[in-house]
Design a protein around this nucleic acid. Structure first.
Lengths: 148, 148
DNA sequence: CTGCATGCAAATAGTTTGCATGACG
DNA sequence: CGTCATGCAAACTATTTGCATGCAG
């Protein structure tokens, strides 16, 4: 089990094991994904990487994120109109809550959730592979700011 | 209450009341949305409309669907890569289950769901406006077909 | 008649791809 | 050193927009 390893080390090891090259840009992107809590988008990741490697292209960010997505190390969060955001800390399906004003995304605890998948599989005969549970609302901070 | 009115009548009345024009194309699109169970996409709606009004443009379909969306009469279902699909029968948030092979979308019954929103609002202090619960899996039909 | 709706084409935005160059292993 | 990754630009796709024309009210 790798549970005691940092996400960063885990992701880097996985790339190494599978024979992918560890370029500085790639490592930087992995670091950002492994350490960000705010569910960054490609644009934001790109902004961060270029602070260290100024010539890094958007295409490289897309390619790296896409690679990690395929390896199951990063989960894509695609909210309606919003541009995609990514979660590298917890790449498995879990609920999100997004503030429609400030666009912040956080991960609430919802224990009662797993039961739903079972209920559903039994009811429909589907083989459930994954799911997505997203809430949209206004965060406490933004509620305060709109009370003029 | 309009619960005894057909969705079609309800949507047409709403357009009339709010002063939107009832062009034949618009009515045809509303009809398709009100009567389709398969959660059609814009392309599919367009294919249907053009059977009756062959010159109807994609832009008109987009505009009409968008209008109904803003009026709260149609719900957009945006699944990751897949192109958007629409639900005109039940425009309020409800769970979906999509087959990753045949791309069919159906509406399962999940009673235990409403409790989650409450739990969440209390836990996080968010004002919850909406949510999205989508499952991805393989439908019974496609499971059969892959057992060679 | 008057203005909103239509339909065409062009614009947009996020993302992907092709290809020549560069650097990891 | 060979191969894969990078970076640039061009391609793509779903959707939106501008504008002249048409038709509902």
């Amino acid at each position: 089990m790798n549970t005691c390893m940092s996400r960063l080390d885990h992701m880097v090891d996985m790339l190494k094991e599978k024979g992918f090259r560890l370029t500085p840009q790639r490592i930087a992107i992995v670091e950002i994904l492994a350490n960000s809590c705010e569910h960054p988008g490609v644009e934001q990741i790109h902004r961060e990487v270029t602070k260290r490697f100024s010539t890094t292209s958007l295409a490289t960010v897309y390619k790296t994120v896409s690679l990690l997505k395929e390896l199951g190390e990063v989960m894509e969060i695609g909210f309606g109109d919003e541009t995609n955001r990514y979660d590298g800390k917890n790449p498995h399906p879990h609920p999100h809550i997004m503030c429609v004003k400030c666009k912040s995304i956080t991960d609430p605890d919802l224990s009662a959730l797993n039961a739903l998948s079972w209920e559903l599989a039994e009811e429909t005969g589907y083989k459930i592979l994954s799911h997505r549970l997203d809430f949209f609302g206004i965060c406490p901070e933004c509620q305060k700011n709109s009370e003029q």
